[in-house]
Computed example of a mutant assay.
Amino acid sequence: MPTTSRLPQTDPTPVAVEPPVRRPPRGAWARVRRAALPFGSLVLFLALWQSLAASGTWSETLVPPPAKVWEAFIDVSTTHDGVRGYNGTYLVEHLGISLRRIAIGSGVGIALGVLFGLAMGTVGWLRALFEPWITFLRTLPPLAYFSLLVIWLGINEEPKVTLLAVAAFPPVAVSTTTAVAAVPRSLLEAARALGASRWDVVKDVVLPSALPETLTGVRLAVGVAYSSLVAAELVNGLPGIGGMVKDAANYNNTPVVLVGIIAIGVSGLIIDGLLLRLERAAVPWRGRS
């Protein structure tokens, strides 16, 4: 009896095939996460602040709610009841005047710090001569010598700019000195063997090698200048954001004090971000070699 092969029966009903789920690329998730985490922390901070203010543990003079601070921000940023901003100056103008002082003061301090750092890093006896004084200056709080600057220079712009320059000078000088002293000796000897002059060695070997640490010192110097801003504007600081904070504190105007503090902090974050971008553009090899 012949055997017949039986083929398996197939269901003629077509099966719907779901298209594969397209997931966003990993880089997009990273960008979303980087944006969501700071935003989430801000929302959490505002919620804790509001709950603390609403608890009644402290009075509104000590811990005003976020709504009061927002109203103060609107008041100092606009003209209200015939009053222009705070003390006749808008918030953005106070901030701009303070940023100009920081730019001039920290710019002078950074330039001097780089020059001193290069000199002390390449000449041993200069380092032995000046490094103790720079360390002494770096450990002094700004208020310790601000009164002396007022006696010497008066109460106008000179003591404020000088204080910011003195505050910004040590971080750059120390970081540049350390970076220059750490340049591999083999690179220096190779450059001299190829006939490079002293200036060529500094320009083509020392400066590129020291640049990453110098830029880190610049970021630190700007941060120190920001932290010294209110101290620099203690005397005759209006107009100026630090002077606004000091004047509002004299009248227990806590919302305006918080507006000034937030303005200083946010502008400092922005400038530090710009400096970080500059550092990445100037030394793209940092962290990759």
Rank of each mutant, 00 (worst) to 15 (best):
A111H: 10
E93V: 04
V123Q: 11
A173S: 13
G105K: 15
P171Y: 03
A221I: 04
S5C: 01
L229R: 14
E279K: 07
A173Y: 10
V245R: 02
A16L: 14
F39N: 03
V283I: 12
L274C: 11
E157M: 15
L148Q: 15
L52I: 00
G82S: 07
G260P: 12
L37M: 09
T13I: 07
A111P: 06
V259P: 14
G27V: 07
T61K: 04
I270H: 11
G109V: 07
L112M: 11
G107K: 12
A28H: 14
V245L: 10
I271Y: 12
A263R: 12
V172N: 02
Y145F: 15
H80V: 07
R23P: 01
R22G: 06
H80Y: 07
L91Q: 07
N156Q: 13
S41L: 14
W133S: 09
L238H: 07
G82H: 10
W199C: 00
A167I: 10
N87C: 02
T57Q: 04
A182C: 06
R31Q: 11
V201N: 06
K68L: 04
W133H: 06
D247C: 00
L44I: 10
R277P: 00
R277I: 02
F169C: 03
G242F: 06
P2V: 05
I271T: 09
A210S: 05
Y86V: 02
A231C: 02
E279W: 03
L140W: 08
V69Y: 04
F146Q: 15
L149I: 15
T10F: 02
